[in-house]
Amino acid sequence: MPRILITTLLVLTALVLQVTVVNRLPVSVVPDFVLLVVIALAAIRGPVAGATIGFFAGLGADLLPPVDHALGQHALVLCLVGFAAGRWAERRPLLTVAVCAAGGPALALAVAGLLGDPGVDLRTFEVAWPMAAFVNLLAAPVVVWAVLKVYGPRPEKATAAAVPGWRRA
């Protein structure tokens, strides 16, 4: 089970580096590397694994201090993103990664708005989302490349050959 180890390690590294290094850079908008790592892992591993990875990565993000929001908010968002990335990455990998990277912040804002977080409204969406989506799109190729490098070539091809058509069902 070295894949589980590698996945855990990747996600934990992304989580810690995000809050200790990336978020503290003196710029107002930074890419969300946890989201991007989840997208890349899900694109390699498929929808079920993607949703699981997303859920646990989100749970980690919810637990990692500093935290002042409801537990599970990140988990919900990343679970959905992971599933979507795993579901469509096989047919249209580039488009899927791009849509997930850009749509992740939008989904997070929508969930926050639905949960009634103060200060999240349509104007917040207009202000915050375009920049967040843009920096995520910029960082996505680098992260996907790095994850592929760590993870090796897509291992799912063998699985798909062994179990023909299981993903299309």
Binding site: V19, N23, P66, V67, H69, P105, A108, A110
Partner: peptide, 16 residues
């Protein structure tokens, strides 16, 4: 000293 920060859109602005 600040050791970590959270700044994702839709989440709180908090530091550790």
């Amino acid at each position: 000293q600040v050791v970590a920060r959270r700044a994702a859109p839709g989440f709180e602005d908090a530091v550790e």
